[in-house]
Structures are given as structure tokens and as C-alpha cells.
Computed example of a mutant assay.
Amino acid sequence: MDVIPRTWDWLSTGAHWTGADGVWHRLGEHLFLTGVCLLISCAIALPVAVVLGHIGRGGALAVNVSNAGRAVPTFAVLVLLLLSPLGTHGSWPTVIALVLFAIPPVLTNAYVGMREVDRDTVEAARGMGMTGRQIAARVEIPLALPLIVTGVRSAAVQVVATTTLAALPGGGGLGRIITAGFRLTDTAQVVSGALLVAALALLVEGLFVPAQRLLDPRRRSRSTPRPAPRTEREPA
């Protein structure tokens, strides 16, 4: 098979990395679209999950409804949006489809994280006179943060991989490299584009892992050194 050496030749050619159709430009488009979709999905899902997780009502219904959206393929949603009046509004069909795809993992993990906070800890905070907002901000959200970050990480990796669909209606991103390769019947270019998307998804995954560990309050408390106990000196 000569696909591997041809793919290496394509990736190592400097001309493929520069210009309007180069890898760096397409990578910037891919990251921008991914970041916008992820921010919008977090802005929608996190407040809903925090409120429902705090009050403990309506969360199961919201999670089930959001998870039902996973059964609908993102490509099908994108096609329907392109055929609707929104199809004439630039990248909005792609953004909406990706946001709908990213909301379920963010919402589910944040809600579960809020509900799994130890109820005794919450009651102790309430007994200290904290208001509902203070309990959510100072107790529940910090303790739920590891699961919240897990949901955001899962959504980020999925959006990075799925943003390649933006190339189908003529949008930007690394998917344009793949579609151009199909158009030119250039297998090496198709494989190169796929490898770039996979590498970016792995990089995003790798960046979230240490962030999740640093934000874990239980891990921070374990790593904080405790002062040595003071001992009384015996009289001489």
C-alpha cells in the first residue's frame, strides 16, 4: 500500500500548510467554530443543569429529553436546517446542529454532578445560614466540578470531530481538506485531513485531563500538606 508514504508526503509539503486553503488556516476555522459551538452549548446547558440539580426537580425529564437528541444524527439535523429558511444564513445551520449535539453530555454530567454532592454537606452549609445561591456557588458547584468538566470535555471532543460536517454546505474547517480530497480523488489528502482531525481531538482530550485533575477539590485537599501536630516538651 502506497497510501502511507503518499499521506506523509502530503503532510510534509509546506505548500499544503499555507494560504487560504492551507492546514493552518483551516485549523483556525475549525477551532473557532468548535469554540463558538462549545461556548453556546455550555451557556445553555450549565445554568439549566445547575438550577435543576440544586432544586432536585425536573432534572430527570431534562436529561432524558436532551439524551433523546443523541438518537438523531447530527448530519440529518444539519440537512434539515439547510433545507429550512436558516439555510441562507451562513454558518448558522452548522452552529445550531453542533450546539444541539453538544448540549446532552454537558447537561447530563452537570446535573448528575450536582445531585451526587453529599446531602449531609449541603445540610451542614444550610445549618450555617447559607442561602440557596451560596450553597450552590460555594458547596455544590465546586464539588460537582469534576463531573461538569467531564461533560464539557466529552462535548469538546465530539464537536471537534463533528465540525468536519461544516465543510459539506461549504463552511470552513479541516473538513474542507477532506472534501477537497474526495473531489480531487486524492486519497492521501483525504487520509491527511482525517488524521489532522483525529490528532486535534486527541489534543483537546489531553488538555482537559490535567485541567480536570487540577479542578478536583478532593484531590487538592489530599495534596495540601497538613501541619505537624505540636508536642508538649517534657520538663527537664
Rank of each mutant, 00 (worst) to 15 (best):
A76W: 11
P169Y: 07
Q134H: 05
L215P: 12
V159Y: 01
L203D: 09
P85K: 00
L174F: 10
A211V: 15
V99K: 01
R220K: 14
L147H: 06
R230Q: 15
F101N: 02
G22A: 09
E116D: 12
E123L: 07
E29C: 01
L145I: 11
A211L: 15
N64Y: 14
V190W: 00
G175R: 00
S66D: 14
R115V: 03
V159E: 03
S221F: 11
R115L: 03
L147F: 11
L143S: 12
H25L: 09
V117R: 08
R138P: 11
M1D: 13
D118H: 09
P104Y: 00
R119H: 12
I148V: 07
A211G: 15
P235C: 12
W8Q: 07
I96T: 05
R176H: 11
A136C: 13
T88H: 10
S91E: 08
I148H: 01
L38N: 01
M130R: 07
R126I: 07
V99Q: 00
A161G: 13
D21I: 08
Q212T: 15
S91D: 10
A199S: 12
G113L: 07
A228K: 12
G175T: 06
Q134N: 06
A15S: 15
W92H: 09
I55W: 09
H89L: 10
F182G: 08
V157E: 12
L46Y: 09
M114C: 08
V139L: 10
L207I: 14
M1V: 13
V149D: 04
A201L: 07
S41V: 03
D186I: 07
